[in-house]
Write a protein that binds this DNA or RNA. Structure first.
Lengths: 155, 155
DNA sequence: TGATTCGGTGGACAATTTGCTCAGTCTCTG
DNA sequence: CAGAGACTGAGCAAATTGTCCACCGAATCA
């Protein structure tokens, strides 16, 4: 879908000050309320805006350690059952199937390095998982963001 | 920070139906409005809730390709200037410094495989980046989520 | 035991916002 | 030129918000 400058500014505004309403947005962007409403509805309908948080910081909940675990799986049964099992582990935040040496990549969190071992053990126990390789995220100089992308897409 | 069952339910409710207000939450959870307000304020103050979207789907904007790029950098100057440069590329959604063979891991998106090459070229051009290894995400059986973690943390 | 603090309840109030509708204007396009 | 699509500005009733208050029960502590 194509996004224009106003859409981009609207998303940026909401990202910066999420609790402001439609009316306040229209004032800030200097357009009519109906326009803001229509833009938001359109972006939601097209799937550009998938939801409105709340955004949770795992670290604030005590899950300080983030790691990326590459999985090698036995291919016979396919990856779907493996993914289903992984989905059952709360510490697994995200799973992708990937190209390259590994078969799947997942992002996991844990309360400590020792706790990470527990989580990895849970993953290794999943039926079909042959081997894992883990990489710990030491620091996150650029946390997940989409604003620059939105600006790039929307002028 | 510690989270209790009510906090977890509140977050889950807001995640499921983001546009409902405090009052509606209090009705759904069968508690007083002040309680909901207090809980949300507390979680926001403690950093558990970092914001309220809007959540953007890069794929809906035409950025269909997601890749994870491992960077090997020249260590002399440290990774901070590298991270700063990377932050200037809109398609770079996230950057971590990591343990293991590589030095940094970043998540990037692109409009196509050909476009991914362009983005990777941008990354390679960053001062201090020696080499990159890319892995393309073919499918995402478990998209990024924190709800199960919240439930696990909150009972 | 008695006093205090904390978190929750339930109610109240004005001010604001929402959801919805409508008529009018502008620009682009066939 | 007519029609479609997008935006404006306005209006209205209903709902929500922010902010008070008094009160209650449980836990804590001297």
């Amino acid at each position: 879908m194509t996004i224009d400058h106003l859409d981009a500014r609207l998303v940026a505004l909401l990202a910066a000050e999420p609790r402001i309403g439609v009316l306040e947005c229209s004032r800030r962007l200097d357009v009519a309320r109906g326009t803001v409403q229509a833009r938001l509805d359109r972006m939601a309908a097209k799937g550009v805006i998938t939801g409105y948080g709340p955004d949770i910081d795992p670290a604030a909940l005590g899950f300080d350690v983030t790691a990326f675990v590459t999985l090698h799986i036995r291919q016979v049964a396919g990856h779907v059952p493996v993914a289903d099992q992984l989905a059952g582990i709360p510490e697994v935040l995200e799973v992708h199937t990937i190209t390259g040496g590994g078969d799947m990549l997942c992002r996991v969190v844990a309360r400590s390095n020792a706790d990470l071992q527990r989580v990895i053990d849970l993953i290794v126990d999943v039926q079909g998982v042959v081997r894992t390789e883990s990489v710990i995220a030491l620091d996150t100089p650029v946390p997940y963001r989409t604003l620059p992308l939105v600006r790039a897409a929307g002028g």
